[in-house]
């Protein structure tokens, strides 16, 4: 009997010791845990897709017709916040920052030559740059959204980049220009007009808000900002719409924009984000997707297709992004595989 107990407790001790050794070997730091596709991707004029993917916590940029190896790979402490192809598709700009951001975090904007894979730092900033967009009219102009602070304005949220404004960097003259003085709590989906000197961003329509309730009631809309008169910005999404618009794509030739908004609520109480189109001439709104998941980041490809992301694990621990494609009218939705 004693021998049996001795063996039993010995077995428990051995199994525990084995698990401890396994724990010491396989334990990962927070920076090594990210895996898979992120929500950062872009489509070049020749139809090539560049996407940011984590491999054991290392953020890398990959190309769909590449050899499967990353053209850029960062250490586990860093992340890529955005990528953007130049109009000719030969240069890819990307912005690097700390994975675990704090008030001291800055950013570095890099340019990669897609043909030679030569990587150079365009400029660095002591602030956090969240988005990049080449000017389709001028290949030397790189616009970006920069946060003024990294803090938590609300006690129930963690610190995040806030006080956003629109800036640009002239790659030839190496000169920065700040266009707005808005210090917006949130600003995203930067797009530069291909025809005139304006940019488009999504932000809170809270200019006339006086009280905390007003701010809470304000909607997120799409704004057009003339660069020579930024104070004369105007709303181009439905100004009376009661829905928040989170992400968008302009289709000027169709007088339309494709935007992301909440389409419904799933059985588990999680919002389902769908893509919609809005014609600013006719004020007609149409729901393009009905995938009942999280659709985001619509991008127009050279063959006039809309690419977008679908997260099958939205509100889960780690997103599970997939790239989809559809016609501009929402037909022929299919997943892109490579």
């Amino acid at each position: 009997m004693n021998k049996t107990f001795g063996m039993l407790f010995g077995l428990i001790g051995t199994i525990t010791a084995a698990f401890i050794v396994l724990g010491l070997v396989f334990d990962k730091s927070e920076n090594e845990k990210q895996q898979g596709l992120t929500d950062n991707y872009d489509v070049s004029i020749d139809g090539r897709i560049a996407y940011v993917k984590y491999d054991k916590g290392k953020a890398g940029i990959y190309l769909t017709n590449g050899a499967g190896e990353p053209i850029v790979q960062l250490p586990v402490e860093q992340t890529i916040l955005d990528i953007n192809f130049s109009k000719d598709g030969k240069t890819l700009a990307y912005v690097v920052s700390d994975k675990e951001m704090d008030a001291e975090s800055g950013s570095a904007v890099h340019l990669v030559n897609i043909e030679t894979l030569e990587d150079q730092t365009a400029f660095s900033s002591k602030s956090i740059i969240t988005e990049l967009a080449f000017d389709p009219k001028d290949p030397d102009q790189l616009f970006y959204l920069q946060a003024g602070v990294f803090t938590n304005y609300s006690p129930i949220t963690g610190p995040r980049p806030h006080d956003f404004d629109v800036h640009s960097y002239d790659l030839a003259e190496k000169k920065h220009t700040q266009y707005t003085e808005l210090k917006k709590y949130s600003m995203r989906s930067l797009q530069v007009s291909a025809s005139d000197e304006t940019v488009f961003v999504q932000m809170d329509d809270d200019e006339n808000a006086q009280t905390a309730d007003d701010i809470f009631e304000s909607r997120q809309r799409i704004f057009q900002i003339p660069l020579d008169a930024p104070d004369e910005k105007s709303i181009i999404s439905n100004p009376a719409g009661q829905e928040d618009i989170y992400d968008f794509l302009l289709l000027p030739e169709r007088d339309e924009l494709i935007y992301q908004a909440v389409g419904g609520t799933g059985a588990n109480g999680v919002f389902e984000y769908e893509l919609f189109s809005f014609n600013w001439k006719t004020y007609e709104t149409k729901q393009l997707t009905n995938l009942k998941e999280y659709t985001a980041k619509p991008i127009l490809s050279p063959d006039n297709k809309i690419y977008f992301l679908l997260d099958r694990e939205f509100a889960g621990r780690q997103p599970d992004y997939h790239i989809y494609q559809m016609n501009v009218d929402g037909t022929d939705i299919k997943e892109i595989k490579w």
Binding site: F19, I20, L22, G23, L24, F26, D27, K28, E32, K33
Partner: peptide, 16 residues
């Protein structure tokens, strides 16, 4: 412990 280690990457040794 094994699920936390091999799925989430966390070794909760003191708890084990």
């Amino acid at each position: 412990y094994a699920c936390q280690l091999f799925i989430m990457g966390d070794a909760h040794i003191p708890w084990l």
